[in-house]
Computed example of a mutant assay.
Amino acid sequence: MSVSERYARAWEGFWAESTGEQGEPFWDADPTLTAAPHLALFTAHVDRTLPIVDLGCGNGTQTRYLAGVFPRAVGVDLSASAVAHARRADRDGAAEFEQLSLTDLVGVRRLGDRLGEANVYLRAVLHQSDPVDRAPVAAAVALLLGRRGRGFVVEPTAAAKAVLQQVADRPGGPPEGLRQVRKHELRPAEVAPGELPELLRTAGLEILDQGGTDLAMSESHPDGTRVTLPADWFVVAATAAAGGRPGG
């Protein structure tokens, strides 16, 4: 199955016009506000001796942070321009980056075969994916985990739309990061309430832990406070039915 043409075109257009600098995209907050608190939620469940795969890594901001915690960190993204940005930004070669559509489950399995069992970080990817692509993306998580790997999935809730509208309606119009989201017809907060748990379970993922959080963005409100989106997070493991792979 191939990712929808609209989705692929939208993301390549976005990243091709971006400088790739950390903080430029609307969601590209510093890892101390994103990956670090997520890892704190993840840590009781995760085996840190396994590699980690950052799915939908974009310009690699979070991947580089994860590379300092796990023995191997691999960021994958649909967009060739995003991967090029990520490689340029990783001046120390801390992580690895490659272009891969998460709906290409043959390609995902090849990646899993190379890595062996792995942990997965999936931050705000499903809510942007077209509905037809969400099940394959969730299945990609299950394929990569194997028996020992654990996944951390965090997604804005439908309530995030109200926050985004507030930012868009500020005097002077939306900030440049949000303008770019709209220009390229990216679609935030499109997952319906209750959809995510069912999507994960159908993909062969067992939910080990879950909760609510605030997902930090790179922008601030006029009063200087950080823009955050209400989000749900899940720690998942692959069920036996999902075909957990042996360690590599």
Rank of each mutant, 00 (worst) to 15 (best):
L178Q: 06
P131H: 05
H221P: 02
L33T: 06
A159V: 06
R170M: 14
V69C: 10
A203H: 01
P188H: 05
A94D: 10
P193D: 01
E176D: 14
T239H: 07
P131K: 08
D113C: 06
D28M: 03
V154Y: 01
E195P: 02
R114C: 10
D47Y: 05
P131L: 07
S218L: 05
A240W: 01
R182K: 11
A94H: 11
L105F: 09
G211P: 11
Q22H: 13
V120Q: 01
A44L: 11
A89V: 02
F70C: 02
R6A: 14
V132D: 15
Q180R: 15
P193I: 01
P31C: 12
S218A: 15
L178N: 05
N119D: 13
R148P: 08
K161Q: 14
T202R: 03
L199V: 04
D54F: 05
F14I: 04
E98G: 14
V132P: 05
R201S: 06
P246I: 02
T157H: 04
V125G: 00
L164Y: 07
R87V: 13
R187Q: 15
A142P: 05
G244Y: 01
P25H: 08
L143F: 00
H38M: 13
L105A: 11
Y7T: 13
D214N: 11
L111H: 08
P31K: 11
F26S: 04
G58M: 10
F42S: 07
G75H: 00
T61R: 13
L126H: 03
D232R: 14
Q210R: 14
D133R: 04
D104V: 10
A16D: 14
A192F: 03
M1R: 12
V137H: 02
R72G: 05
R48D: 05
T202N: 01
G13I: 12
Q128N: 12
T239G: 02
W27K: 00
R114W: 07
E219G: 02
E12P: 13
P222H: 10
T63V: 11
P188F: 00
V108C: 04
G107K: 09
C57M: 06
D169W: 01
R123Y: 03
L178Y: 12
A94E: 12
L144Q: 02
L186M: 15
S218Q: 06
L111I: 12
L50W: 13
V191Q: 02
V132Y: 00
S4H: 08
G93Y: 05
P37F: 04
N59S: 15
A162C: 03
F97D: 06
D223E: 10
G60Y: 07
W15H: 14
L215Q: 14
G211Y: 05
M217K: 05
L199T: 01
S18V: 03
K161F: 01
R88L: 12
V235S: 03
V125Q: 02
V153Q: 02
G243I: 10
G247E: 14
A231I: 10
L115K: 06
A44G: 15
A94P: 04
A67L: 02
L115R: 12
Q210T: 13
P25G: 12
P193R: 01
E117P: 11
A242Y: 07
A80I: 07
G172D: 11
F14H: 15
E24G: 09
A36Q: 15
A216C: 10
A35T: 08
V108I: 13
I52H: 03
E5I: 09
